[in-house]
């Protein structure tokens, strides 16, 4: 692969990563949010795959396949199943911040991510590290979704967006942090999602609905 093509492909994948994060903020139907999230998984896997081809590393290629399987396959599937049982609340009707302000916030967060990431890019300038700010922006947007959305499922998507961003930064900054850690991280993310899925089911049994506005039992 020529260097110019490699840089273009990396930028393309990183752009797709950011675009899907913003789309999650824009869409309100939970079903389409989950589809966008699956697309982001594909973009992330593509990013890792491109790096694998560039480095000629079969191990990284296998990891890219794993990312594709988990983030574009398993996690969206779990989310869709949760949505199927959710009943009436298929739509984020009243987020704490409306859509227009959310998009403006996303722009501000992206700028912030670029500002914060400067030391990271300068430490080892390369095509991959130049994409780090995008990963950071996805983390910040995910955090924003997590704190401003009211439905349990939207919060879960916010958490997973954060996680996608962190994974992207992880791959862009390093060749890998060791296979055991990689496996542990993957397993933990999967388990967190399954735990939250179980809790969501219980929540529906207890509350009849999963609007987190209903969660007002515990406070001071």
């Amino acid at each position: 692969m020529s260097t110019a093509l490699y840089i273009q492909l990396i930028d393309l994948a990183a752009g797709a990563l950011l675009l899907t994060a913003v789309l999650v903020l824009w869409r309100r139907e939970l079903a389409s949010i989950i589809e966008v999230f699956a697309l982001q998984g594909v973009a992330l896997a593509a990013l890792v795959g491109i790096m694998a081809v560039e480095q000629g590393s079969a191990e990284l290629g296998a990891v890219a396949l794993g990312v594709l399987l988990l983030r574009a396959g398993v996690l969206p599937w779990v989310l869709r199943r949760a949505l199927a049982g959710a009943g009436a609340t298929q739509r984020e009707t009243k987020p704490l911040v409306n859509v227009v302000s959310s998009l403006l916030a996303a722009a501000a967060l992206t700028l912030l991510a670029y500002a914060v990431s400067q030391p990271l890019v300068q430490l080892a300038p390369s095509a991959a590290t130049h994409a780090i700010p995008v990963g950071m922006a996805v983390v910040l947007i995910g955090f924003f979704v997590l704190v401003t959305r009211r439905l349990a499922l939207s919060q879960l998507v916010g958490f997973l967006l954060m996680d996608n961003g962190i994974t992207a930064v992880g791959f862009l900054t390093t060749a890998g942090v060791g296979l055991i850690v990689e496996l542990g991280v993957t397993l933990d993310v999967l388990l967190v999602v399954l735990v939250l899925q179980v809790l969501k089911t219980r929540m529906r049994e207890a509350f009849g609905d999963t609007d987190l506005d209903e969660l007002r039992e515990l406070h001071d």
Partner: peptide
């Protein structure tokens, strides 16, 4: 119960974040 599930949800979301 409602309170226990709420506590567990908050616990997992905040700590995992």
């Amino acid at each position: 119960g409602r309170a226990a599930v709420e506590a567990a949800w908050k616990y997992v979301v905040i700590c995992s974040t």
